[in-house]
Design a protein around this nucleic acid. Structure first.
Lengths: 375, 375
DNA sequence: GAAGCGGCAACAATCGATTGCGGTGAGCAT
DNA sequence: ATGCTCACCGCAATCGATTGTTGCCGCTTC
């Protein structure tokens, strides 16, 4: 169709002889272990042992070298399916998350991927779309694929699915959220420490009427953070009456809805501790709509420090959580479990957060919010 | 070791007879096809056919029912490895991206995942960390795992890796970026249309001195968008001299560096068309540092409309690209290719974008920027 | 010089599902 | 009663790699 092929042909003579083009346009048959064995003049079994780091000792050094060279010459790539079938080890780990477009998860995925692929593992990702049913079927499908283990970020507080996995002895590590039972190892953030840093920070700024926009009670983060809030408030001797509002999910709309309820209740407040950044965003949106300005009229803190939180106006004061490290550590825990025949590790690993003070918190100046918008 | 077993034993009598707890704490042996066959009283081969939608016709209706029921009763889940080994089809597709923490990619991943899992496929994700070497090794590893095809978002303009894949006949679909050769099907954005919308918008606002912060020339998006910029400028009869600055990568720092060069050059401008949102962000940061305010002193447009772009101050005017749909369409194209024995589809599918006018563009008021910061 | 031993490699079974081919029996026609 | 067709099902090979066991060879040792 185009002129270029012809042009190319004409100029070929003057061009230095490069590698021949598209010799392999017909799919090349994959080289198998037998091919390597034949090339090296040994039995496939011997070739297998020569190529396996653990069994290499059972083969003569010279033979090993012959086999290895043959393998390289032929470009041998072992068939992982066949190997997996025989060894029931696939070197694949599954990561289950509710929604990859939620900025919370990409860093976790990345941290896990890094560790896993460094260890020769492949990561299969499944996005459950926040739906327990697809989660269930996805996990079943992963098991059919013979994955060696799971990293799960979708655990609910009561989670039959997780119990099944635990009972079945499938190596499984929980990340970000845990379940009520502590059967499975867990890697998460130090929620208590994070929340109390927020409360302390606000209290130090002179806030007394602090409310908490809590996460859903069917998540461990929702429960742990609201509990931490209560404890921190008590320690500071601050009022707790109707200070905790549970949101239906970790989303902006749920945050906005929570604040709507707060405003309707007439509960006065000068500061909000939100259980995560999205909740905080939704709250701010709603409060702006009500004519309230942050941080002049109220202060607010988030949790997680998602990307772009520093670019908002005002930039969000929040708790930075080492998300990538969480993913990485979850992966390491999983690898440990898979690698050893030992008992499943029971550890609950909590990573400390860091309070990043930015523009949404300031010393209390004016009267509580309820007096501004109230009837 | 623990006290619980004893306690449980003692209390058993008084507890209503529920399902026995943890009977399966010893890993349950997985049920295989033979088990189903035995349960149904048929040969494994028959069971296989009865369970396979395509071969079901070769088996008596009643037998099919028996087998299906046996399979359900036993909770049979076929071993995908064994099947894949035999059929050389794994029902796994690999998605290769440079960096999952870049907000551009999660929507693409999600779109692809959705389509793939609906079709019974599993998605394996590999994050190349923007490194061609790990990309190469990852792709090799995926092939070893017998994936049925690739969706690749990391293609460079000259990309030997992609050519190898194309030559080897491995089903591969390019998304977001394409290569110079059009051997492989591609799903991307309508860059020309997107960029010309930006230029038109700015020109309509009275801007004449528009510059382009271009993406790297080793990406198709960098090349296509800068070409589109030139064309659009010519059509509007606007000055092109030193109006295009290539940035070394699609990142904020590269955007800032590009603007630094722009300011040093003394080239006057009142508006910037950035090749993507990150470049725009970096540029704005750098210009703020120089004391310039957007949109008072200059206008700027981005590309992609990443999440949170609407929350910046001022919110970014940008081209919204249907990223999830791109991922979905790439997945559909791949499935078509895998499903049919036909020739690889050659299509280049370009999805139209939409200009989202927000706060970073306004009518030109003052004098060009160079006159403000110039010596 | 024969028994014994160690090192190395080949043989063959195995993982679990799929599939070409052959065999059985029922049903029908001659 | 014999032969034939057709529907249905079983046999066994196969995918590619791993691994327990066996067998061979050569060397040591008494």
């Amino acid at each position: 169709m185009r002129a270029s092929p012809q042009r190319r042909t004409t100029s070929t003579a003057s061009v230095p002889a490069g590698p021949p083009e598209s010799v392999y346009s017909v799919p090349v048959k994959r080289v198998r272990l037998v091919d390597v064995a034949r090339e090296a003049g040994v039995h496939p079994a011997t070739a297998s042992r020569a190529l396996s780091p653990s069994a290499r000792g059972e083969v003569n050094q010279r033979t090993v070298r012959r086999v290895v060279q043959a393998a390289e010459r032929l470009g041998y790539v072992p068939n992982t399916l066949a190997r997996g079938l025989r060894t029931s080890r696939s070197y694949v780990a599954a990561l289950v998350i509710p929604d990859i477009t939620n900025s919370l998860f990409p860093p976790i995925v990345r941290g896990a991927e890094q560790v896993l692929s460094a260890a020769g593992f492949t990561l299969v990702l499944t996005d459950t779309n926040n739906d327990p049913d697809t989660e269930r079927s996805q996990i079943a499908s992963m098991q059919a694929h013979g994955v060696d283990g799971f990293i799960i970020a979708t655990a609910r507080w009561q989670d039959a699915q997780m119990e099944e996995l635990a009972e079945a002895g499938v190596p499984t590590v929980l990340v970000n959220r845990r379940t009520a039972k502590t059967d499975l190892p867990f890697v998460g953030a130090e929620d208590h420490q994070g929340v109390s840093m927020c409360v302390d920070h606000l209290a130090d700024l002179g806030h007394r009427n602090i409310v908490h926009l809590a996460g859903p009670a069917d998540t461990s983060t929702g429960r742990d953070r609201s509990e931490a809030f209560r404890i921190a408030m008590r320690e500071r001797q601050l009022p707790l009456r109707s200070a905790v509002l549970e949101c239906s999910s970790y989303s902006e709309t749920a945050g906005a809805a929570g604040v709507t309820r707060l405003l309707e209740s007439g509960r006065s407040f000068t500061a909000i501790v939100a259980a995560n950044d999205l909740l905080a965003l939704g709250a701010m949106e709603r409060l702006s709509a009500a004519g309230l300005h942050c941080p002049r009229d109220y202060s607010i803190t988030g949790f997680n420090d998602l990307s772009f939180m520093s670019k908002l106006t005002p930039p969000l004061t929040t708790v930075r959580v080492p998300l990538a490290e969480m993913g990485a550590q979850a992966a390491r825990t999983l690898l440990d479990w898979i690698g050893s025949t030992a008992e499943p590790p029971r550890l609950q690993s909590l990573l400390p957060g860091e309070l990043i003070v930015r523009g949404t918190t300031s010393a209390v100046e004016s009267s509580p919010v309820s007096d501004l918008v109230g009837a």
